[in-house]
Design a protein around this nucleic acid. Sequence first.
DNA 1: CTATTGATGGTC
DNA 2: ACCATCAATAGG
Length: 186
Amino acid sequence: MICRRLAQHDFESDTLHVARMLLGKYLVIRHGTSTLSGCISETEAYCGEEDKACHASKGRTARTEVMYGPPGNWYVYMIYGMYHCLNVVTEPVNRPCAVLIRGVVDVKGLPQPLKTDGPGKVCKAFGINRSYNSTPAYGSQADMWVEDRGVEIHDNQVIKSPRIGVHYAGEYKDKPWRFLLSEHPA
DNA sequence: CTATTGATGGTC
DNA sequence: ACCATCAATAGG
């Protein structure tokens, strides 16, 4: 069975391409001796300063700094004071883009099943917080990474839609930059 | 529809 | 130092 960790260069390409590519890949996190993993089922692309829905539309700040750095680092932020959202930085240095991981299915390693159909719930189930911000999502040293387990996702399994919760984003609010599996492969 | 919750960025 | 807003979620 194929089981390859993605490499940094896998995150360097166009953000829409990465968001589509991540569907069917596996998010894996190591907590000490235990490991959690699940199949990525929903993503959204956030594409640079010109994208009014992207946090980097406000320019370079302490929060967005990681997006201006090299691709393949995690971008984790807190939203509404209660939830964390997990993103991975894409595209070359100084091009502030990221993919939000909104849904993970078929999660293995939890003591009991938890709903993971939303970005806040993904982070809660996986125990993801700000301490992961700016850490690499690739390489053998990573605590949390993405694996290709050979699951092929065809275009007829992928639904594209506008992104959630970005009504304020002007001409960018209706861009079909959300990608989700119509049925998950498990 | 509302309440929750605190980080964040903009303004004073 | 304030203040409005927010890439969410649960509950009516």
